[in-house]
Each structure stands twice: as structure tokens, then as C-alpha cells.
């Protein structure tokens, strides 16, 4: 009786679900913008027939979810989003080590991310920090064009600069860490204190300052340059600036989640996402970061990494929890608590 039932069930299962199951499925946690996520899913499904269930959440939200789900993971791959939470996930053992056959084709910085995370993460794109300003407002207030970090602390910019709060935003933390590496810790904090006098608002979200600049609510917004490019492409009078002293950058990363239920499919996606032809497609989804594969063509609108003075950003050191906590606390006590 029992066996007959089982046989029957198996037969039906093969008849009904067989072909669909053969191609497999996977769950993708995706952190960049919706269009880019959709594009990746569609292309991957088209090529492999693997069904992808995709959820888009910001990198902080995804990290929180993966951490909360750690005892019974539901996701397979976490694609995109700034590198620090990926490193943190690696540090806490939430992600799986994997080395793709495409690793050698990647830019140096992407490979360094792989090494820094003990192979548990890899760089897929990079975006340089900088700022953008509203050309119309600048003219209206008769302000000089800012070209360097040091321009932003000039007294005439009082109340005209906006940045995110590094406690809530990875973008602003990157800026804090960049300043420390660029100027040395003491001078960096002197700079941030001076900048504090010109800041009109510390926003919660990292890209909010440039949106405010596009709307005319602030003149200058400190953000990743590709976010400023996105606003410019929508038609806002935003000018993107790469600071003359040099600047830091983020590495958008990808990790396989530890305990992934569909590990084979996850690895396929991982390799797929590192391929040059796939990375070149990013521009279709209005993503203006620099791709990590050397053979991929960056979008024409993307800030040219060869023209930007990039600092040698130490992701391992400034991505670690201890250093981050120390800097954030110091910023909070010495900068944010100052009267304006």
C-alpha cells in the first residue's frame, strides 16, 4: 500500500514537475536599483532557464535580513550593494567562500575585495566618492565653483552643503574613512568640524543629498559620483565633481550566502555576473558605475576612473567593525555634537 502510493506519487511528480525542476531555481537578494536587478534576472533566466526569485532591498536591509535568517538561510546569492556590509557578512561567517574562473579577468580592486573577504565576496563594480552641485543655485547665490574638498569648508558655503549621517549611511562612512586616509586622522577631524559649520542637514540615506540638490533644497550634496550622474541623466542641473585632492571609492560586491539551498545555481549566477558581456549591459539599466571586469566597457556617462585621483583605500582596515565603531563614535562626539 505504502509503496504503491509512493510509486504513484513519484510518477506523478516526474510527469508534472519533471521538466520544470530540471532547470532549477534560486533566490537572489539584490541591492542596486530595481531596473538593474530586473535586467540581471531576465538575462540569467533567458540564458540558463534557471528560475530566479528576486527581492530588492538596500544593502543595509539585506545584511540585516541575512543575519536574522542565519540559522535557516532563505537566500542564495547577494548581488550588489556597497562592499562594507559584504565584508562584515564575511567577517561574521554569513557568506560562503568561492573563487570564480573569471577572477583573473577582474580589476585589481575587485580581486583585493575577494582577498579581503577571505574569498567570501568579490567586487562587481566600483563607484568613486565626490560631490555634485546645482548649477542654477550656485549662479543664483553667486558662489564660486567648488572643485576640491577644501572648497566646501569656505565660509561662503555656510548652510549650502548636505551630506548623509555616517551612522546611518554607508556612503557617508566611506567619506569619513576617505578623509582619514587622505589627510590623517587629526586633520581629517579638523576638516569635518569645519565642514560641520557649512552642513545644513545630515540626511539619513546616502543618496538623499544629491536628490535634495536636484530639487534645489541644497546647493552641494556629497555623494557617490554615479548617483550624481543618475540625477544629471534625469535632466537635473547637476554638475558632478571629482575632488582635486583625490577621493575614496566603494566596491559594489557579490557574495554567496552560507547554507544556500541552491548552491550550484548560485555559483552559476556568480560566474555569470562577472562576465564582461553581462557587466557591459549595466548602462541599459541606468547604472553608471565602473564594471569590475577589465574587458567590460564602462558606460560613456560613468566617471572615468583614469581621470579620478583615487586613494589607496584600505577596505580591510576601515571595513572592520572595531575601526568603524571607533571612528563613528569619535565623529559623533567631536563633530556632530558641536553647535552650529
Amino acid at each position: 500500500m505504502k509503496n504503491t502510493l509512493r510509486l504513484g506519487a513519484a510518477a506523478i511528480a516526474i510527469l508534472v514537475a519533471g521538466p520544470a525542476f530540471a532547470a532549477g531555481k534560486m533566490t537572489l537578494y539584490c541591492s542596486p536599483q530595481e531596473e538593474w536587478c530586473q535586467l540581471m534576472v531576465t538575462e540569467f533566466e533567458k540564458e540558463t532557464g534557471i528560475k530566479v526569485a528576486m527581492t530588492r532591498k538596500s544593502s543595509g536591509e539585506t545584511f540585516a535580513q541575512i543575519k536574522a535568517e542565519a540559522s535557516n538561510p532563505k537566500g542564495d546569492v547577494w548581488w550588489g550593494g556597497t562592499g562594507d556590509p559584504h565584508l562584515q557578512a564575511a567577517e561574521e561567517g554569513l557568506t560562503e567562500a568561492y573563487t570564480s574562473e573569471h577572477l583573473d579577468e577582474l580589476h585589481d580592486w575587485a580581486q583585493r575585495q575577494h582577498a579581503a573577504a577571505d574569498k567570501k565576496s568579490v567586487g562587481i563594480y566600483a563607484g568613486a566618492l565626490g560631490f555634485g552641485y546645482n548649477e542654477e543655485l550656485l549662479k543664483k547665490h553667486g558662489l564660486p565653483e567648488p572643485r576640491c574638498w577644501s572648497d566646501l569648508i569656505k565660509p561662503e558655503f555656510r548652510g549650502e552643503v548636505q551630506m548623509a549621517n555616517p551612522n546611518s549611511s554607508g556612503t557617508a562612512y566611506t567619506m569619513l574613512a576617505t578623509m582619514v586616509q587622505l589627510m590623517g586622522e587629526d586633520e581629517a577631524f579638523d576638516y569635518l568640524k569645519a565642514l560641520h559649520q557649512n552642513i545644513n542637514q545630515y540626511t539619513k540615506s546616502g543618496s538623499a543629498p544629491i536628490k535634495a540638490a536636484a530639487q534645489g533644497e541644497t546647493t552641494v550634496g556629497i555623494v557617490f559620483q554615479h548617483d550624481a550622474v543618475t540625477m544629471r541623466v534625469t535632466g537635473a542641473p547637476i554638475k558632478v565633481v571629482s575632488p582635486c585632492e583625490g577621493t575614496g571609492y566603494e566596491i559594489g560586491s557579490m557574495s554567496i550566502i552560507k547554507g544556500a539551498r541552491n548552491l550550484e545555481e548560485a555559483k552559476k549566477f556568480y560566474d555569470f555576473a562577472l562576465r564582461p558581456d553581462i557587466q557591459t549591459m549595466a548602462a541599459q539599466a541606468k547604472a553608471y558605475q565602473v564594471p569590475s571586469n577589465k574587458q567590460a566597457t564602462p558606460p560613456p556617462e560613468a566617471p572615468d576612473f583614469d581621470e579620478i585621483k583615487l586613494i589607496d583605500y584600505d577596505f580591510k582596515k576601515y571595513g572592520s567593525s572595531d575601526e568603524r565603531q571607533r571612528l563613528l563614535k569619535k565623529w559623533d562626539e567631536e563633530v556632530a555634537a558641536q553647535p552650529r
Binding site: S58, G60, E61, F63, A64, K67, D84, P85, Q88, N165, P166, N167, S168, S169, G170, A172, Y173, K204, S321, R324, Q325, L328
Partner: peptide, 13 residues
Amino acid sequence: ATDIFFAIVGAQY
């Protein structure tokens, strides 16, 4: 309320 949100999803979980 916003502090709580960013204590979870912010720069430092």
C-alpha cells in the same frame, strides 16, 4: 523611530 531603523540597516548593524 528613525534611529532604530538605522541601528539595524545603517553603517553599523
